[in-house]
Simulated assay, not measured.
Amino acid sequence: MEVNGERLYSDDSGGPCPDRYSAVARGMAYLHKPIIVMVMGSLMSAAGGLLSLLQSWGVTEASTSVASACLSIGLMFVVMGLVWIPILKEKQRRKRFSQAV
């Protein structure tokens, strides 16, 4: 079925569903930014940990400050993402409450 050149997807009941995301995906879509921040922070802290491990084994001549900076900045991003999630959940809860009143 096509409407205005856009294809509509149907759900199990046979009725058209205008978007391709489930209700859970739409409900959790506001969390994509903090999740991305946490993933990037964990990758950066893993790189810092790997650099410090390689340096302790004598494999690389990387500076100690580079490994420490990667590790600390990565952990800072992970913590920022972890703090950001409850803030967004509270904001969405207040928004739903104000719309219901």
Rank of each mutant, 00 (worst) to 15 (best):
M38L: 08
S10L: 12
R20P: 05
Q92S: 11
S13M: 10
R94Y: 02
S56K: 11
P16T: 07
V37M: 13
D19S: 04
L31H: 05
R94E: 00
R94F: 04
R96L: 10
I73L: 15
I85M: 02
I87M: 14
N4P: 01
A29C: 11
I35L: 07
L43W: 08
V59H: 02
M80G: 15
G49W: 02
G49Y: 05
G48P: 01
D19G: 09
Q92D: 12
L43C: 14
M76V: 10
P34K: 07
H32R: 15
S45I: 12
G27V: 00
D11H: 08
W57Q: 11
M80K: 12
P18S: 02
G27H: 05
R7F: 10
M40K: 14
P18T: 01
T60E: 05
L31S: 06
I85F: 00
S65R: 15
L8F: 02
A69Q: 05
L82N: 04
L82H: 09
R7L: 10
D11G: 05
A29Y: 11
E90I: 09
L82C: 14
D12G: 08
L50G: 04
L50N: 05
D11Y: 06
I85E: 00
I36K: 08
A23K: 09
S68E: 12
A23S: 10
V24H: 12
E2L: 10
L51G: 01
L88C: 06
V83S: 08
G48F: 04
S65Y: 12
S22M: 07
D11V: 04
I35V: 03
Q92V: 08
C17M: 09
W57P: 00
L50W: 07
E61V: 13
L88R: 03
G41Q: 03
M76Y: 02
A69N: 04
Q99N: 14
V3A: 10
L71A: 12
V66L: 15
F97R: 10
